[in-house]
């Protein structure tokens, strides 16, 4: 029997899988960079980031005073709103869209594993999202450097790093939604609902819960950091070298109880969200029919 596929130069399994994964990642990145959603989100984020820079500069009353730190603080709320929406919808439409168009079946009919495909998508989309965010942050940084010098640039870079982490984490959640749904429109709807829940309802829920059930401060903190957005917010505030006291009793409790371990704990929460979401997505994807 002529087994051409097998008689080709035999390569260790791992590099082969990596090569396949990277092929998918490159394709995903290329397609994201030319897609409308990427251009739209990049433009929107860049405009808002630059506008925030100008506003924070105006708010100082004099150019050059801690421009980067103030802008980073100003961008925090924008990031919490825009980035999860951007990443979750990108992830949600990814696999579901392929399934709906029929392209998923054709890709899986090639000598590839489902994990390679999913991982490739994840890496490619992560790279596209980070590139998009870096464009926005980069323009903002350009404005600040031009008008205000380099004061507080560390805080700004910390925010960029945490934002990229948040994007990757929420992208994993989006992929989990995507592999669980058949249609891109349904996946997008679910992603928007999850985004709303994380952004708005969790805060309101915590407020209502603490009033109704008289949560103790440690319970309130535990419930808060279950939400990756809250974990991100606390991480970013710590990265700005600010006190978590601004977050009220839960913030004070966290600072006093966990001290220097707190940033690692929060990063761990974010990483756990990302890893568990991706694992769940991989598990569902490998068991689900591609049509």
């Amino acid at each position: 029997m002529t087994q051409v596929g097998l008689s080709s130069p035999s390569l260790p399994m791992c590099p082969s899988a990596m090569r396949t994964t990277l092929a998918f990642a490159r394709r995903e990145l290329r397609e994201a960079l030319t897609s409308r959603w990427f251009l739209l989100y990049t433009a929107a984020f860049a405009v808002l980031a630059v506008a925030t820079s100008f506003m924070s500069l105006a708010g100082t009353g004099s150019h050059g005073f801690a421009g980067f730190s103030r802008t980073a603080a100003g961008l925090l709320n924008l990031v919490m709103l825009v980035v999860p929406l951007m990443a979750m919808t990108a992830g949600a439409t990814s696999v579901a869209g392929e399934r709906e168009r029929g392209t998923l079946l054709y890709l899986l009919a090639q000598p590839v594993s489902r994990l390679e495909l999913l991982l490739g998508k994840f890496i490619g989309l992560s790279a596209a999202l980070c590139a998009s965010l870096c464009i926005g942050f980069g323009l903002s940084a350009g404005v600040l450097a031009w008008r205000a010098g380099g004061a507080g640039v560390g805080s700004f870079l910390s925010l960029v790093g945490f934002t990229c982490l948040l994007a990757v984490v929420t992208l994993s959640v989006g992929l989990l939604i995507s592999v669980s749904t058949r249609k891109a429109s349904v996946a997008t709807g679910v992603a928007v609902f999850v985004w709303l829940t994380l952004v708005f309802l969790s805060d309101l829920g915590l407020m209502a819960g603490s009033l109704l059930f008289k949560f103790r401060v440690q319970e309130l903190f535990s419930l808060a950091i279950i939400n990756p957005l809250q974990a991100f917010k606390m991480s970013a505030i710590l990265g700005l070298n600010a006190s978590l006291d601004v977050l009220g009793p839960a913030g004070v409790y966290a600072s006093r109880t966990f001290g220097a371990a707190l940033p690692w704990m929060l990063a761990g929460v974010l990483a756990a969200w990302g890893a568990l979401s991706f694992l769940a997505a991989a598990l569902i994807f490998t068991r689900r029919a591609p049509v």
Binding site: Q3, E31, T34, R101, T103, L105, Y106, A109, P111
Partner: peptide, 19 residues
């Protein structure tokens, strides 16, 4: 995956990204 290396598949209609 190894089995698919031995197979070339032609669907009813090529489904690939239009762009």
């Amino acid at each position: 995956k190894m089995a698919r290396r031995l197979i070339g598949y032609v669907p009813q209609e090529l489904a690939f990204h239009d762009d």
